[in-house]
């Protein structure tokens, strides 16, 4: 067990999780005392349920993060079912290790990369981000990940790489949600190369300092905090650099309601509901909804990416 000599944001703000952590450390200590050795993974990753070694990254919000319980039991991950608690219920047996990612398309270093090769060379960062779902609820999540751009640069994208296309694992055996055609499987998402290289964009491997639980998209998921949550594709097995804009799963399912950009925008409503306000998960039953911020409050960082673009048409 590696010790940390710094204070994580959530340790200041969330006592219950801090206690969780102490219990975890205690359990780990007992396990070691009983002569068990921890499953050491290469790089900085510890045992499957273990703590991650990370440094504090930039851009963290000081809003209080949601509880571990809310973050890990209220999920949209249709591969494991469409109810919010389905992913928690159905993903526990999911095998997220070993894991390989196929990198292809407009780059000089395509190939099959093991999870360890992908994450190993990077320093993991803590980033506490707001998370806004297209369904008008939101959370604050202390992610652990690496800047996606740093990862993508290692594959040497060429000048034709205008977009990046991501794909989720397709495995109906393990992912019961994929046995019904709710969406076109496998799930596909995409970003412009500028969005992918933006320093806010993360490839996430953990939450609350621990390895990402299966229901949150283990072992690798995308996070673009200024976009609606569905852009954050989970359990990624393919990364492709393309010259043309990828067709994404929700666009294919309903292009009138979901676009390629999916930037959080309080002024552009979903055809069936308003996006002007959001309900913060964990707030009290009698608390008011809060106003949704343009680009989910990250306008200063990302607005320039969309200069000149009609955000009503490019929703």
């Amino acid at each position: 067990m590696k010790t940390k000599n710094k204070i994580h944001p959530w340790e200041i703000t969330s006592e219950s999780v801090y206690l969780d952590r102490r219990q975890f450390l205690l359990a780990a200590g007992l396990a070691t005392a009983a002569g068990m050795t921890s499953l050491a993974l290469p790089g900085q990753l510890m045992a499957a349920t273990g703590d991650l070694e990370s440094v504090q990254g930039p851009y963290s919000t000081d809003e209080p993060p949601n509880s571990w319980k809310d973050i890990t039991t209220y999920n949209n991950f249709y591969e494991f079912g469409t109810a919010k608690d389905d992913p928690y219920d159905n993903a526990q047996e999911f095998r997220s290790q070993p894991w390989t990612v196929k990198v292809s398309g407009e780059c000089d270093k395509p190939g099959e990369y093991h999870f360890e090769d992908i994450i190993g060379p990077h320093t993991l960062e803590d980033r506490v981000y707001r998370h806004r779902c297209v369904e008008a609820w939101s959370m604050v999540v202390p992610w652990v990940g690496i800047p996606l751009g740093d990862l993508l640069k290692r594959f040497d994208p060429n000048s034709d790489a205008k977009f990046v296309r991501f794909k989720t694992l397709h495995d109906p055996e393990q992912m019961p949600g994929q046995r019904r055609p709710v969406l076109r499987w496998p799930y596909v998402e995409g970003l412009t190369i500028a969005e992918a290289m933006h320093p806010l964009t993360l490839m996430v491997v953990g939450v609350y300092g621990k390895t990402l639980p299966n229901q949150n998209g283990a072992p690798l998921r995308l996070i673009t905090p200024w976009k609606y949550g569905f852009k954050g594709i989970k359990s990624i097995v393919e990364i492709e650099f393309t010259s043309r804009q990828p067709h994404t799963s929700w666009e294919i399912a309903n292009s009138r309601e979901y676009g390629f950009y999916a930037n959080v925008n309080p002024e552009v409503d979903h055809p069936r509901w308003s996006q002007a306000r959001e309900r913060r998960i964990g707030a009290g039953v009698f608390d008011e909804k809060q106003p949704t911020l343009m680009f989910n409050g990250y306008a200063e960082e990302v607005a320039e990416l969309y200069a000149g673009l009609d955000l009503r048409k490019n929703y």
Binding site: K69, D70, T73, Y74, K84, D85, W137, R279, I281, G282, V285
Partner: peptide, 14 residues
């Protein structure tokens, strides 16, 4: 009212 550990989950109003 959260009696006996029962709850409406993370998004009780919905």
């Amino acid at each position: 009212f959260g009696v006996a550990g029962m709850s409406l989950g993370a998004n009780p109003i919905e």
